[in-house]
Structure formats: structure tokens, C-alpha cells
């Protein structure tokens, strides 16, 4: 079972709540995915516009909430957003994401580390969304983050695990759970991440924009489970053929 900070999860598929056509579809998809941790964003209420209530169905479904700090462009804004989220949702769990760049939404490593240090101090369970940077992930772990969430590819691109080599290093080195976030476009990507030894994946766009989000959510759940089982079963790798060269151990016979 996956354990992050004080919580245990039987499902290793985390989901986002954005980009679904309707709140009903969102809530049905999350249920189909079996996800026990879902992300949410914080937004200032406009006086006129009446937002759909997405919180009630999530709470009813019994999932844990993981508010994010999207929209924050630096550490200061992220810390403010974190405190808003804690106040609004009554959870100290936080997906820390800081992107100063509105086009590709690339996470800012320097601001993220600075914010993580402060937020850990303030008692948050911090899960930072970062580039697949092994050193940064170690620094965040040292800072007390409960997990790290490196990206597979630019957010929303569905391109799969473009950062695979670096994800492998992060997974090898981490003492906290590694959640592959962003870029996972198909269940096969999610399965691959799990086969590589990721502790969980976070999927949003690929589910939300599928023709049938509920069916896709189910497919992701199966892929994550299959990938995890394969990882535990111990994958065989491609067979390596020894190159012919002079024997290195023959000297043992001449002792």
C-alpha cells in the first residue's frame, strides 16, 4: 500500500479535476478511476459568475483533496495560495506548483524549493510539481517534502514519459514517494511509469478530454495496477549478448 505522510492509498492513480465537460462527468470519472486523491485549484470568486459546485460530489465520493497552488508565479504567491487552500478545504495537503511562464507552465525550481522550505515549516504536507530534475528532487526531499511529483512531459501535452531517463534516476534515489505528474497521455504511459518503479501517477487531461472519460478513467486504473504488478513481479529485460573478448577470469585456474 502506498503511504504518503499520514495517509495510505490503495489506488496509485491520482487524478485532476480540471477540463472535464461537466461536473457530473468529472465525478463519475473519478469514481471509475478508483482514485483516492484528487487535485483542486483555488480561485477568486467573481461577484456575478456562479461556479458549479464540484466540492460536494467529491466529498460525497470520499476522496482526499489535494489543493494546488496553480496560478502562483513565485514562492510568496504560492505560500498565500497554500494558506487559502488550507483555510478553504481544511486540509494541510498541498500540491505545490509555481509556474511563472503562462505558455508551457514550466515549474520554477528556485521558487518551488524556497516555497517548499517555508510550507513544510508551516506544517503543510507538500507534494511539489517539478521538472524531472534528480538534484532538485533530492533537495526537496531534504527540505521535508512528503513526495515529489516530477513531470513526464510538458503539462497537458499527452506526450508520455519524455523525461524517462531522469525519472529513472529520481526513482532510484528517492526516499519519498515519486508521483509522475503531467504528460501522461495514455494508459500505456501510466503503466510504463509504474513499471519503472514510480509510486503513483497523476492523470488529468488524458482522462478529461477522452471521448468517453469514464471508460478512460477505468482504463487508466487498470494500467496503473498492471504496471505496478509488473514492477513487483520483476521485469525481465532484453537479453544482453556478451561481446567476445579475452577472458578475464582464466587466471583463477592458474593459481
Amino acid at each position: 500500500m502506498l503511504k504518503i505522510a499520514d495517509k495510505s492509498f490503495t489506488s496509485r492513480l491520482f487524478t485532476g479535476t480540471g477540463k472535464f465537460a461537466t461536473p457530473e462527468l468529472m465525478s463519475q470519472s473519478i469514481q471509475a478511476s478508483g482514485s483516492q486523491l484528487v487535485t483542486m485549484a483555488m480561485k477568486r470568486v467573481d461577484a456575478q459568475d456562479q461556479q458549479d459546485d464540484i466540492l460536494a460530489p467529491l466529498i460525497k465520493a470520499g476522496v482526499n483533496l489535494l489543493p494546488n497552488t496553480s496560478g502562483a508565479r513565485n514562492a510568496e504567491e504560492a505560500i498565500f495560495a497554500a494558506n487559502l487552500a488550507r483555510e478553504a478545504l481544511g486540509t494541510n495537503w498541498l500540491k505545490l506548483e509555481i509556474h511563472p511562464d503562462p505558455k508551457y507552465l514550466m515549474p520554477d525550481p528556485i521558487e518551488t524549493l524556497a516555497a517548499a522550505e517555508k510550507l513544510v515549516e508551516q506544517g503543510f504536507v507538500v507534494l511539489p510539481y517539478v521538472h524531472a530534475d534528480p538534484v532538485l528532487c533530492k533537495r526537496l526531499e531534504d527540505a521535508g517534502c512528503a513526495a515529489v511529483m516530477p513531470l513526464g512531459a510538458p503539462i497537458g501535452t499527452n506526450k508520455g514519459l519524455r523525461s524517462r531517463d531522469f525519472l529513472e534516476i529520481i526513482i532510484e534515489q528517492a526516499n519519498v514517494p515519486v508521483v509522475v505528474d503531467a504528460g501522461i497521455g495514455a494508459p500505456s504511459d501510466a503503466a510504463l511509469a509504474m513499471e519503472l518503479g514510480a509510486d503513483a501517477v497523476l492523470v488529468n487531461t488524458a482522462m478529461a478530454v477522452a471521448k468517453d472519460p469514464v471508460a478512460m478513467a477505468k482504463a487508466f486504473a487498470q494500467a496503473v495496477e498492471a504496471g505496478r504488478s509488473a514492477y513487483l513481479a520483476g521485469l525481465g529485460a532484453e537479453l544482453r549478448h556478451a561481446e567476445a573478448s579475452s577472458p578475464l577470469t582464466a587466471f583463477l585456474d592458474t593459481l
Partner: peptide, 25 residues
Amino acid sequence: TRSEWANTLLNDHAKVRVFRAIAGG
């Protein structure tokens, strides 16, 4: 904080902003 809402009297020119959780990834 929520528990202080009833006790917090608003002065003239007070600026209040309300944030809520919305869908997001």
C-alpha cells in the same frame, strides 16, 4: 479563519476577497 468570521466587524473601505476551490489539475 472561519471561526473569526462572526467576530470580525468590517470597517469603512474594507476590502474583502473570497476564494473557493474549483476544478483543476
